[in-house]
Design a protein around this nucleic acid. Structure first.
Lengths: 210, 210
DNA sequence: TAGATTGTTAATCGATTAACAATC
DNA sequence: TAGATTGTTAATCGATTAACAATC
């Protein structure tokens, strides 16, 4: 099945389906209709059926969806059965928080090394990781076939580091730096922009008080 | 001017305008046309004009937009001229990273206190903050007129803490816990869901390799 | 079988893009 | 004034919702 050109709107709903189905599974519930799922997840039943049918007919008329099967299928669609290796650049507060973040393993991502440019932190240990010198990023990526770079550095210098990651061969960047990275289009960038999130909250709070 | 019912799509672009205009400002550029801005920000010129005109006619025919003025105006639209007080719940790795996050002050948010339930961290100092006992959250919020709660706790217990924040009077929650909080609809919730972001990256990487 | 619920097509709604008159 | 570019209306595109025949 080739890429049917799934819209970003659909893709961003997939993790929500996966999460809610996981919750149901842990409650030992076996099946659910699009209508029931609609009630708990907040999308319309119609949208749920449309979304799922982008990837296949997972349901059964008159019955609904088997929760365990659907959960597994969406996991596969999300690529959670694949495994990826990652390096994290920028071992400051946020970088350390991400490195310690458990959700990683569940998604099949494994952080292999932490890098920083600050001599004061190079050599320190964060859990099982010794913080390595940024000078050796390229070498490490090439030798260890790293798939993903996680950028937890300030805005300044982030683009340059992204260039280095891409040149060394990573295929994806999880970017926490507050800027839009410029990379060749075969490299995937997923942004987590705290500033934009905070500004959105600020806007909504202001509107709410009017 | 009452709320013209601006769509979320527009609202989420506002921080990007603000950021790019700030960058231009720092380069001492004085004016820009929607076409030029389009080239650097990546939205169509038409969309930029539509977006801005939701809030007022900030441009001038034949000239374009004055960058400093527009930057200021969008800042006001985002409510960055307002100030809000916040408490942070959950002083783990991520919580500490957020507490140390500088972008806060620029947005008019001030963290007043950190709370945690773990006796091992209560009393510790993070920068200027002593970590307080979660038992006193409500008391603190009421006495200090706190506007916003920042939730940096695991999924378990997050809903209960959200309830406590809302009951104590916060009007907004910046939620880093990986679940959808249930709150009365006069309370704003802005989610930062690292798991969903990571899963999206996983999906896109997988598709990219097909 | 009768009832329930899917998969899918058609209708609607909303967001983006194009076009151009207004005007600086 | 002539040229440039906005503000805004109209056209298009895409996403969501509604409807219902298929079928378990």
């Amino acid at each position: 099945m080739a890429n049917k050109n799934i819209s970003m709107a659909v893709i961003r709903r997939l993790p929500k389906y996966y999460r809610y189905l996981g919750d149901l599974l842990r409650k030992d519930i076996q099946r659910i209709s699009s209508k029931e799922l609609s009630d708990i997840i907040g999308f319309t039943a119609s949208q749920i059926r449309q979304d799922l049918n982008n990837f296949g007919g997972f349901g059964q008329q008159g019955y609904g969806y088997n929760i365990e099967d659907l959960h597994t299928e969406i996991g596969k669609i999300l690529g959670l059965d694949k495994s990826y290796s990652a390096v994290l650049i920028g071992a400051g507060n946020l970088g350390q928080a991400i490195a310690n973040y458990a959700g990683f393993r569940n998604a099949g991502f494994e952080i292999k090394a932490l890098f920083d440019a600050n001599p004061k932190v190079i050599g320190l240990k964060i859990r099982e990781f010794e913080i390595l010198d940024s000078d050796f990023i390229e070498e490490y990526i090439k030798e260890n076939n790293i798939d993903i770079g996680i950028l937890c550095v300030p805005k300044n210098g982030a683009q340059q580091l992204a260039d280095r990651l891409v040149n060394a061969g990573v295929k994806g960047i999880w970017n926490f730096a507050p800027l839009d990275l410029n990379v060749s289009k075969d490299v995937i960038v997923e942004n987590v922009n705290l500033t934009e999130s905070l500004f959105t909250l600020s806007y909504l709070m202001k509107e709410d008080l009017l």
